[in-house]
Design a protein around this nucleic acid. Structure first.
Length: 803
RNA sequence: GCCGAAGUGGCGGAAUGGCAGACGCGUUGGACUCAAAAUCCAGUGAGGUCACACUCGUGAGGGUUCGAGUCCCUCCUUCGGUACCA
């Protein structure tokens, strides 16, 4: 009997797969293709932790199984390597971020290799490689050419002490995470991408894809399409009017005051009419220090200032109403102004209560003494002139028609989705390939100039006023205008990390192509991605951005499909043993290297899958790891139970057919934990029997191979089976042989189990009832009561309802 | 706050509206051993009983149903996202 030595076995097979190029993808377009994709990692300095292998192993299983099913499988890996942590590390340690990145990648790659994934490493990509970001820049130029990139003044978080623009994450309670100084919001002219132009396409595209339903909902809610109206309220004593957006034009008669955002231009425009201008300015300054999240939080105390000197007129009843300024109204959504209907909007209600403003009921059905009535299904309009007596939907339609006829309003579709802020005042990102010329304005570089590479630089610190560190590299910044050849300056902002990850799946298809983003024919064969799995934390932003770019590339004829990903699933996080998120600071990080060292990669892979429901987060447990290793030891010892004989033995036949069916389905539906449980149970059956045939063992090894590929290949070879498992076919099952001829059913009395019996599994409900009626145990059971009803469910149970 | 999820033994979890707790961990007992580890076999939701019987039990409270972990309503707690973290 041989020893199961994971270290030797795993090294042997990893070398063999490398040498034989077992998982090299051929562009053999005769076979059906299957493109399995996992989110490429950010190569951090801390290396892999046990959370990383969870999704990788899952889709490695799918990829390996699909190969045995006869598919040409693309399962690639790469690096999303631009980003803040690397840059911050580089600043702190005075090393080039490229060097840090290189080191981190080498470490990550070594770790991934030791887990035995079937990636085609010849297609490895890296977003920081100029050969890669050439095409990220190319896509940006196309967006620019098509009018989808524009400049706009937007706020950034700015640390007054570090003089750096900060990510939201780096702002803790309004203070800088590093130095605890005040963070202010500073206006900067930034590049924006017009994703809002694609809002409808991004909603409609969801009809054609197979995403988990909650993911689709998240996407739709993020885009937040709403149908409402814009209405003009005249401003007393001027020719001007104040335009608001509302999703509830039906409540127009209930508008008792208006609220505008502190940044609203109206304030500046009528500065001289406003008697408390200073007070309003002070309020605006205060609001500027808050994030949108802080401003709109519902449970916080509402704040605001009435504008003294300006009032508006409700266009449907000519009532004069006050105008307030409050930070819960955002300049970035709608028109930056609202009509407040405190009777029927929770935020307005709270505001009105706090500042003692009138509340009028215009939709009947609730109790506005207590709270705002926001139900739109049951309410009936009251106190509302021409729309009295209608329900909400009818009232909306009628009032919009009225407003349009009078020229004071119009129906309007609005989106919560905002345009994408695409500028970062940082070094470690793709340079934006544009030049500013005094005469020609913003001019794109010629495609032949790409990639525009990052200049070598000694100091990665941003400048005093929050500009990108690139600004200081005058050699690089000063250039000539591509159009008129006069002196001009380069854009110094770089792209956000989202850029490189928005299209990486396309580059795997043709990673070395210098002439185009990817070959057209290859794109046609390989797109769309058949299955994309990643973290739940990426299903709004990354997924949306990436769908946006893909759809844009489709619209300009670069890619052949509207949607990038046919199917999207999400995995749960792996937590530390203490049930907290794994992090260095919490000291609960588990390194996969240690697990591999003690138990082997096959055990690691299996535990990653067996640990629990794939879609839920779950704490790591070293004891659980041990259990998986114990199972592999038991599998190893099956070699000693091999006996002569072909096919499946009578005793195990049904177990095997059931196991094939279950494992096959479970691998395709993210239920790896129950697939492994099935194989464990099958092993228990074999142990009880004490022997198995070579055919049985072969089937077993193929079923287990995607989870634990090294040890199964070793056992395959050790026991003299032909070739390698990676050359075999996935086993088939016979549906008939998964059905038991006899089943145990339960007899319930009023839903409580009282008795059990074995019956033939093909009996109908009627036959079952007949059988039970004549059974003397059952007669005994019901003899003291009156039978009202008998319910029989074939193969399951009989429930006798008695009095 | 808003949007999306999730709450089941000591722990991870399983269960097309049909015997709650598969499988694994832990634990208890036994076998093997001088002994221990490893391994193998058996038990293991709680209460209750010598043993049965029986009672309770899927975050809380209601409801629908012959039957609810599963469907509906209200609530509580935890997690993810919240637009410059990745």
């Amino acid at each position: 009997m041989k020893e199961y030595n994971a270290k030797i076995i795993e090294k042997k097979w990893q070398e063999k797969w490398d040498a034989l190029k077992t998982f090299k993808v051929k562009d053999n377009h005769d076979k059906p293709k299957y493109y399995a994709l996992i989110e490429f990692p950010y190569p951090s300095g801390t290396g892999l932790h046990v959370g990383h292998p969870r999704p990788y192993t899952a889709l490695d299983i799918v990829a390996r199984k699909r190969r045995l099913d006869g598919y040409n499988v693309l399962f690639p890996m790469g690096w999303d390597a631009f980003g803040l942590p690397t840059e911050n590390y580089a600043i702190l340690n005075k090393v080039h971020p490229a060097e840090v990145t290189k080191k981190n990648i080498a470490r990550f790659k070594e770790q991934l290799k030791s887990i035995g994934y079937s990636f085609d490493w010849d297609r490895e990509i890296n977003t920081t490689d100029p050969k890669y970001y050439k095409w990220t820049q190319w896509i940006f130029l196309k967006l620019f050419e098509n009018g989808l990139a524009y400049k706009k003044e937007m706020n950034i978080n700015f640390c007054t002490s570090c003089k750096v623009g900060l990510a939201n994450e780096e702002v803790v309670n309004g203070k800088c995470e590093r130095c605890s100084s005040d963070v202010v919001r500073k206006l900067k002219s930034q590049w924006m991408l017009k994703i809002t132009d694609y809002a409808d396409k991004l909603i409609e595209g969801l009809d054609d894809v197979d995403y988990l339903e909650n993911i689709k909902t998240q996407q739709k809610n993020w885009i937040g399409r709403s149908y409402g109206a814009e209405v003009d309220f005249a401003i007393t004593g001027t020719d001007d009017s104040l335009r608001v957006y509302t999703t509830r034009p039906d409540t127009l008669y209930g508008a008792t005051y208006m609220v505008i955002s502190p940044e609203h231009p109206l304030i500046e425009k009528y500065r001289n009419k406003i008697s408390n201008y200073d007070q309003i300015m002070a309020y605006e300054a205060e609001a500027a220090g808050k994030s949108d999240l802080e401003r709109t939080e519902l449970n916080k105390d509402k704040t605001g200032v009435e504008i003294i000197g300006l009032t508006a007129v409700n266009p449907v009843n000519e009532k004069e109403i006050p105008i307030w300024v409050s930070d819960y109204v955002l300049m970035t959504y709608g028109t930056g102004a609202i009509m407040a209907v405190p009777g029927h909007d929770t935020r307005d209600y709270e505001f009105a209560r706090k500042f003692d403003l009138p509340i009028i009921e215009v939709v009947k059905g609730g109790n506005i003494e207590e709270e705002a009535f926001t139900d739109i299904e049951t309410g009936i309009l009251v106190n509302s002139g021409i729309i009295n007596g209608l329900n909400v939907a009818e009232a909306k339609e009628k009032i919009i028609a009225y407003l349009e006829e009078k020229g004071i309003g119009t129906s309007k579709v609005n989106y919560k989705l905002r345009d994408w802020v695409f500028s970062r005042q940082r070094y470690w990102g793709e340079p934006i390939p544009l030049v500013y010329c005094e005469d020609c304005g913003w001019v794109p570089l010629d495609e032949s100039e790409l990639p525009l590479t990052l200049p070598e630089i000694d100091n990665y610190e941003p400048t005093e006023n929050g500009e990108s560190p690139l600004l200081k590299i005058t050699d690089w910044v000063n250039t000539t205008c591509p159009k008129c050849h006069k002196p001009a300056k380069r854009e110094t902002d770089t792209m956000p990390q989202w850029a490189g990850s928005s299209w990486y799946y396309l580059r795997y298809i043709d990673p070395d192509n210098d002439n185009e983003l990817a070959d057209k024919e290859k794109l046609t064969y390989w797109t769309p991605v058949d299955w994309y799995n990643g973290g739940m934390e990426h299903v709004t932003l990354h997924l949306l951005y990436s769908r946006f770019w893909h759809r844009f590339l489709y619209d300009i004829g670069v890619v052949p499909t509207k949607e990038p990903y046919l199917k999207r699933t999400a995995h749960g996080m792996i937590l530390g043993e203490n049930n907290e998120k794994m992090s260095k600071s919490r000291g609960n990080v588990v390194n996969p290297d240690d697990v591999i060292d003690e138990y082997g990669a096959d055990t690691l892979r299996m535990y990653e899958m067996f640990i629990g429901d794939f879609e839920k987060s779950v704490p790591w447990s070293m004891n659980g790891v041990k259990g998986c290793r114990r199972f592999l030891d038991r599998v190893f010892k099956l070699s000693d139970m091999l006996v002569d004989g072909e096919g499946y033995t009578k005793e195990l036949e049904s177990s095997f057919h059931k196991a094939i069916k279950k494992v096959t389905n479970d691998f395709e539906t993210l239920k790896f934990n129950t697939a492994i449980a099935t194989l464990m149970a099958l092993t228990n059956d074999i142990y009880h029997k004490g022997s198995l045939t070579r055919d049985e063992f072969a089937t077993f090894l193929i079923l287990l191979n995607p989870v634990s590929p090294h040890v199964t290949e070793e056992l395959w070879e050790m026991n003299g089976f032909d070739s390698m498992i990676s050359d075999q076919q996935w086993p088939k099952y016979d549906e008939e042989k998964t059905i038991d001829s006899q089943v145990e059913i339960v007899i319930q009395l009023n839903g409580k189990v009282k008795h059990k019996m074995m019956i033939s599994s093909d009996l109908s409900s009627k036959e079952m009832i007949g059988l039970v009626k004549s059974d003397k145990d059952i007669i005994e059971l019901v003899k003291d009561s009156t039978v009202i009803k008998v319910i029989a469910v074939p193969k399951k149970l009989i429930n006798i309802v008695v009095k």
